[in-house]
Design a protein around this nucleic acid. Structure first.
Length: 501
RNA sequence: GGCCGUGUGCCCGAGUGGACUAAGGGAGCGGAUUGCAAAUCCGCGAUUCGUCGGUUCGAAUCCGACCACGGCCUCCA
């Protein structure tokens, strides 16, 4: 397929740049993934879905994408007032929550885990994340080799730390901890637009005096912390302890993608500083290269009903809560949630609303109705080799810094045209769904008891209708609708389908 | 305070100097259809793009000021 010029907004240069991989058609992409000491929420998934859409689009454009998304299973600290190793380990906090849940019988069915075992906790939430991600159609969730866990790469982190010390980019301070020296890396601050002077000013009051005292510069950040008492600890040349929270991504990107410079690195906007700034310093400091990722792409944060998401406001939703109806009061098809989280441009502050969910449900339905009309079979269809003006426009829209909203418009405009050659329609749907992934092959089967309930009500309606007892028929129909079903009369009889949202 | 960014119909959201008589979706309204509905199909809807100026033959699109809103600045996707 003749790929148009692809342009992405690069956070590093704050400008739109033509995208050229280092070794086409291969693209090496690293996405900052979830921390696995709690369920990931819809804001997290906005970021992960952004990465998934990016990967899917690049594949549509003919690239061979190697995508890596890490699972952070080392517990970081809860207390930001002492950023370099204070407060409570988040994994330990998760253990306490789980122990509480276990005691009160609130653990999910069939789950029995030891709240004192951090690895079991990480496994539990890691599995939950993968399950959620698969439901939302995130491709990498089905590629276990591309979901590295930080605890499996502690040795790789130590290799980098050792190199950084040798090259003068890191030092062991008087408290025994290893810090990265930001002054040894002149371009520190380039990504975030910070300068060392500003960071020095901003450090006052937020970082504990005792920690600051041992560092050469207030912005120096932790690479290794010797701490025998820590919940998760590993032996190292600098004492038994744990790694700093930026080093894992530098280590895993290099280890799994097997190259020093990668093509794309993504994350949420909050990752820009300090996380990604520190990653660049570590990776480039160790490799000697002048870049770590050629493109840095960051998604904006998600708002919920016009407000910033936060636990204190109580507007903090996990994927499973939304799907099970905890947000709208009615079960939501995962494809609807997916579309809702990708329909706006990734660099806009999208507002997550109940109204938006309803809109997306109608949109998903529209696509599925069209697919059904042309007897689309995802297992048979392929976009490869198809040529159509709408496909060209579709790719052009996404080539423009991943403009999903415009691409969605192109898709619906095509769907409004009368379907010409069915083979072409199938190929077009395959192309659209390669990116949006909302069609799904199988319709979700209702649970056993529910299917019986539905059939009973349909039978009751039919009996009433035979007697022209419209009042009874309407009453039963209202019951079905109250259960979240859409009831329609067709030539073949009454059909009840579960609403998408 | 520093640095980013946003403001388009009832809602979401494209459009970044002339095919804009402003895409597409949702909601609404009118019609077809229906026992009534639902679903589906057809049709309608911004003389206007936060405000005020400026540049230009021409601006939602460029520039300036102002207003409003959001984000980041060592917990956070």
């Amino acid at each position: 397929m003749p790929a148009p010029e692809i342009k992405f907004y690069n956070s590093l240069t704050k400008s739109l740049e033509p995208f050229e991989p280092i070794a086409p058609p291969s693209v090496a992409m690293y996405n900052c993934g979830p921390t696995v000491y709690d369920y990931a929420h819809i804001g997290n998934f906005k970021s992960f879905l952004f990465a998934d859409v990016l990967r899917r689009f690049l594949e549509l454009a003919g690239y061979d994408v190697r995508q890596v998304m890490n699972l952070t299973d080392v517990g970081h600290m809860t207390d930001d007032a002492v950023a370099d190793g204070g407060g409570q380990d988040k994994m330990a906090a998760a253990g306490e929550r789980l122990a509480e849940a276990k005691k009160s019988g609130k653990l999910p069915q069939g789950v029995d885990l030891d709240p004192n075992d951090p690895y079991a906790i990480a496994r539990f939430y890691g599995d939950a994340f993968i399950e959620d991600a698969k439901q939302l159609g995130i491709k990498v969730a089905s590629e276990p080799d591309h979901l590295p866990r930080a605890t499996d790469h502690v040795d790789n982190m130590q290799v980098i730390i050792k190199t950084l010390i040798e090259k003068g980019h890191a030092y062991v301070a008087s408290d025994g901890a290893v810090y990265f020296s930001v002054q040894s890396f002149p371009s520190y601050g380039r990504l975030s637009g910070n300068t060392l002077d500003e960071l020095r000013g901003g450090a006052g009051g937020r970082v504990s005096e005792s920690n600051q005292a041992v560092k050469r510069h207030p912005a120096d950040f932790l690479l290794w912390k010797p701490d025998e008492s820590h919940l998760m600890k590993w032996d190292s040349p600098w004492g038994t302890g744990y790694p700093g929270w930026h080093i894992e991504c530098s280590a895993m990107a290099k280890a799994v993608l097997k190259q020093d410079i990668i093509d794309i690195h993504t994350g949420g906007e909050d990752n820009i500083f300090p996380h990604h700034e520190c990653e660049i310093a570590q990776s480039c400091g160790a490799t000697g290269e002048d870049s770590f990722a050629r493109f840095w792409m960051h998604g904006r944060h998600l708002m919920v009903e016009g407000q910033k998401m936060s636990k204190s406001k109580g507007n903090f939703y996990t994927v499973r809560q939304v799907i099970e109806g905890g947000f709208t009061g009615r079960a939501v098809d995962p494809a609807v949630l997916r579309l809702e989280l990708i329909k706006a441009h990734y660099r806009s502050n999208m507002n997550f609303t109940a109204k938006g969910i309803e809109d997306s449900a109608s949109a998903v339905k529209k696509v599925r109705v069209f697919a059904k009309e042309v007897a689309y079979d995802p297992a048979q269809a392929s976009w490869h080799g198809v040529e159509h003006e709408a496909l060209t426009e579709f790719i052009a829209a996404l080539s423009d810094d991943l403009n999903t909203a415009k691409a969605l418009g192109v898709m619906f405009a095509y769907l409004n045209e009368p379907a010409e050659d069915v083979v072409v329609s199938h190929a077009m749907l395959a192309a659209f769904d390669q990116v949006f992934a909302v069609i799904n092959s199988a319709e979700a089967a209702s649970a056993g008891g529910e299917a019986d309930m539905v059939q009973n009500k349909i039978d009751a309606m039919n009996r009433a209708r035979q007697d022209k007892d419209w009042a009874t028929s309407d009453a039963v129909r209202a019951e079905l609708e109250a259960e979240g079903y859409e009831v329609k009369q067709t030539k073949a009889g009454i059909v009840a389908t579960k609403k998408l949202a």
